[in-house]
């Protein structure tokens, strides 16, 4: 049911019947360590390149999510996935070899939200019965693509974030039990003219604020409705900005408003503003949030993955960074 320009609620909400997360060693040492389903000791995952490792992480997350849903991959109608590598190669290669429709998505670090919402729509609309939604990122493949060689002795500015090596996947189904995706708000591109590639939080914060504001206005809910409202990877500084922007719009956010990126690493892990990357929100949701919801410790959650839609070329040509955010609500 459409509730406004951007917001909709499902009349028959799809169930999240399985979820799985795969993370690298640094993420495993972070705040959600014990919640992640597979924690790697070797961030290359036994592969020859980090690109191959990321692909294997996403493939493993998808297969184990299907396994946890007590299904076979043959039961899956479609894979909706994306990542932040060029031409979303990790996702295409991870879907290779599976007999399911593949829809590759790109929303930078907001990809997990885009996948979950579109997957939910496919099921709620009666077009598919079971879909897998996944996203991934890898620190080492992202560094070489967006920044510098790993061994280069450069200094990170304190406004920067650390791309997580992680993959998260969920299985959505027309029937079953457990947490449901009840609705969501799709985001528009918001660009406040930030050009600093080392301050992605500031670039994405206006998009997050815009999407969250639209969600509450159109869904006619208040922030108190949710037990937890999580943005994707704004980081500590960006999240503070989003809170400030929302307050200026007259929407005071409760303490339950937090950020996956800001929460994933511990202070002493030197990730500055926190984690980022398409895998960040995916893994935190599939690992931590989903388990807490199954335990009924959390019952109503709003997830707002955020993305910075830049390319290396666009930033080198002096373009500002367009931000995006999509929100989806998960309820027991």
């Amino acid at each position: 049911m459409r509730m406004g320009n951007q917001t909709f609620m499902f009349e028959k909400p799809p169930y999240i019947i399985g979820a799985s997360s795969v993370v690298g060693p640094k993420e495993a040492e972070g705040n959600f360590g014990e919640y992640f389903d597979l924690r790697l000791n070797d961030d290359a995952f036994g592969e020859k390149s980090y690109e191959k490792a990321e692909c294997k992480m996403q493939k493993t997350a998808m297969e184990s999510a299907v396994d946890r849903a007590e299904l076979k991959f043959g039961d899956i109608d479609a894979i909706l996935s994306g990542d932040i590598s060029n031409q979303i190669a990790a996702s295409s290669f991870a879907a290779r070899g599976h007999d399911a429709v593949f829809l590759g998505l790109y929303g930078a670090c907001a990809t997990f939200g885009e996948a979950a919402i579109l997957g939910g729509m496919l099921i709620a609309g009666g077009f598919m019965n079971r879909v897998v939604c996944a996203s991934s990122s890898h620190f080492s493949s992202a560094e070489r693509q967006y920044r510098y060689p790993l061994e280069l002795g450069n200094q990170r500015p304190p406004s920067s974030q650390w791309t997580v090596s992680a993959a998260g996947a969920v299985v959505l189904s027309v029937n079953g039990g457990g947490p449901k995706i009840t609705g969501g708000t799709l985001g528009k591109i918001v660009d406040f003219g930030v050009t600093d590639v080392n301050n992605m939080g500031a670039a994405m914060a206006p998009a997050a604020a815009e999407c969250i504001y639209a969600h509450f206005a159109e869904a006619k809910r208040t922030p108190g409705y949710y037990d937890l409202i999580l943005t994707g990877d704004l980081g500590k500084y960006g999240h503070g900005l989003a809170r400030k922007l929302l307050k200026e719009k007259g929407l005071g956010m409760p303490p339950s408003f937090n950020d996956c990126g800001a929460m994933i690493f511990k202070e002493e892990q030197e990730a500055f503003q926190g984690g980022s990357g398409a895998g960040c929100c995916g893994a935190v949701f599939s690992g931590y949030i989903y388990k807490r919801m199954k335990e009924k410790k959390l019952n109503r959650v709003l997830i707002v993955p955020t993305g910075a839609l830049l390319s290396k070329t666009s930033s080198e040509q002096g373009e500002s960074i367009p931000g995006i955010a999509h929100a989806f609500s998960v309820e027991n």
């Binding site: 406040f192 206006p206 500084y237 900005l241």
Partner: peptide, 16 residues
Amino acid sequence: VQKEYSELIKKTEPKT
């Protein structure tokens, strides 16, 4: 709006 935002960031962003 862009100008106001970039001034806010300049003022509040974490410094080295």
